[in-house]
């Protein structure tokens, strides 16, 4: 019974996140933090960062990867299934409804107006997640340098995210 309640919880939490995540996987980061670190305290900040790293290092959408991982951590394999179904359910339902009204939806002034407000807000939300997640992690010069180097390598297009994480793993072994 407790497991069933927890599975419902997971499904609904992730459905809510899927429904509010305008802008794809990264838009889910501030939402997942609010839901799982602050409200429910299922994860610590460090665990959350590790999950994002693992989600980046494995194939597939980061949103699905992190949902599966968090679900597994909270309630095993059934939890992984509940979380994954939860995060894709809004996509499937919304797209199936909208697909028939494709042209209508795309040019609707109402939809454009709503999206035009949400998009910039998501930037602000993800930026706040950077600071919140960075605070407990960037505690010494080594960590700060790794973070800054990762940002620079990505922004200048020198390396893709996957090799950046690989390099950081190596630096972790050498420096800590």
């Amino acid at each position: 019974m407790i497991l069933l309640a927890r599975l419902c919880d997971l499904f609904l939490s992730f459905a809510r996140i899927g429904l509010a995540a305008f802008g794809g996987g990264y838009a889910m980061i501030p939402l997942m933090r609010a839901e799982f670190i602050i409200a429910r305290q299922w994860l610590t900040l460090e665990e959350f960062l590790d999950i994002i790293a693992i989600a980046e290092m494995t194939p597939g959408p980061v949103a699905i990867n992190s949902a599966t991982y968090i679900g597994y951590k909270v309630a095993g394999i059934p939890g992984a299934a509940a979380a994954t179904l939860g995060v894709i359910a809004p996509s499937v339902v919304l797209i199936l409804i909208i697909a028939g009204l494709f042209q209508h939806f795309r040019t609707s002034p109402l939809v454009r107006a709503v999206i035009s407000g949400i998009r910039p807000a998501v930037i602000g939300l993800i930026f706040s997640a950077v600071l919140v997640l960075g605070r407990p992690v960037l505690v010494d010069f080594r960590a700060f340098s790794i973070s800054f180097a990762a940002f620079l390598l990505l922004i200048t297009g020198k390396l893709r995210p996957l090799p950046v994480i690989g390099l950081a793993a190596l630096l972790g072994l050498l420096l800590y």
Binding site: V130, I146, F151, L154
Partner: peptide
């Protein structure tokens, strides 16, 4: 060893999310 590896990876993930802010 894994603890060390993730000590290196965590700050990189922060940089990665900052990069997403920049891109978006």
């Amino acid at each position: 060893l894994l603890i060390k590896v993730f000590m290196g990876i965590r700050p990189a993930v922060v940089g990665l999310i900052a990069y997403a802010v920049f891109l978006l």
